[in-house]
């Protein structure tokens, strides 16, 4: 498959200061051996990077370390130009206000409406009770959330409870929540793993058309080699506790990627 024929393909990003720089990263839980160690890579502004690897390779842990959600055992992380080690709570929150997370399980609040869930995406920028529920939210926040829902074609479902959506609809809402605050960097951890193939394709196409339009840096994990090759600009392969691969998609094919799983 030629790169220029990809759905939503974009021009190679201009390399500036990296949005994420990871150096010598290692993570071990308790006395257990490290899940991974000596992991180093950078992700440039506007780049879409696929992180692949077998189950238990530490992909999700690595991404959570990158957002400062989990502390690494060793190494350093520079997120959006700021060193995470020793960053205070307020500075960390300010940094995270420019990031977002789309997870495999969608992670919406089940009993709340779709609109409330999307308004929650603004909490990093606007704190307080008015952003806890759509009924209390200021007009601007409601309009912003509705615009985000329009982008994922879910505006008609704004009042529906999140636990009454299909898997694909639910993930669309999670994408709207992640994008409503116009983040600079998004982490998508196996965003289609809980969806059937058709819904997965639809969600991936939608997600990448939006992030490319808004020039958001994306790091995503996937077991789907086609997705990694189709939507990534670059692929990182994690295996046997090390970063085994870091290459542009143009240099790779699915067979080479499968070696990561051996």
């Amino acid at each position: 498959m030629a790169l220029d024929s990809k759905a939503g393909a974009r021009a190679a990003p201009v390399i500036t200061m990296p949005d994420l720089k990871v150096e010598g990263l290692a993570k071990a839980f308790g006395a257990a051996p490290a899940i991974f160690s000596d992991v180093s890579f950078t992700v440039s502004r506007g780049e879409a990077v696929a992180l692949v690897g077998s189950n238990g390779a530490g992909k999700s842990t690595l991404l959570r370390c990158a957002l400062g959600l989990i502390a690494p055992s060793a190494g350093r992380i520079e997120l959006l130009g700021a060193e995470l080690t020793g960053l205070g709570g307020r500075d960390m929150r300010a940094l995270r206000a420019q990031t977002g997370l789309v997870a495999q399980k969608h992670n919406l609040v089940p009993r709340l409406s779709v609109l409330s869930n999307v308004i929650h995406g603004l909490l990093g920028q606007q704190s307080g009770p008015r952003y806890w529920h759509q009924a209390l939210a200021p007009r601007a926040a409601r309009e912003k959330a509705m615009a985000a829902l329009e982008k994922v074609s879910m505006a008609d479902f704004a009042q529906r409870r999140a636990d009454r959506l299909s898997g694909g609809q639910s993930q669309r809402v999670a994408i709207a929540r992640a994008l409503v605050a116009s983040p600079r960097l998004l982490i998508a951890d196996e965003p289609t793993a809980s969806l059937d193939p058709a819904a997965g394709e639809e969600v991936m196409a939608l997600f990448f058309s939006l992030v490319r339009r808004e020039n958001v840096t994306v790091i995503f994990t996937s077991h789907n080699m086609t997705h990694a090759l189709e939507y990534g600009d670059r692929i990182l392969g994690l295996g046997r506790g090390r970063l085994q691969l870091d290459a542009p998609v143009a240099d790779l094919c699915a067979a080479e990627l499968r070696k990561i799983y051996d």
Binding site: L67, L69, M92, R93, A94, L95, R96, A97, Q98, T99, G100, L101, V102, A103, K105, H106, N107, L108, V109, P110, R111, L112, S116, H120, G121, L123, G124, Q125, S127, G128, P129, Y131, W132, H133, A174, R177, A178, A181, P183, I187
Partner: peptide, 25 residues
Amino acid sequence: KGPAEALTATGARRLDIAASATIPA
């Protein structure tokens, strides 16, 4: 913990996360 983690990743404060995600759940 999923919804709380998603809000933490957007920079939300602990009280906002508790009120928006943990209590409704």
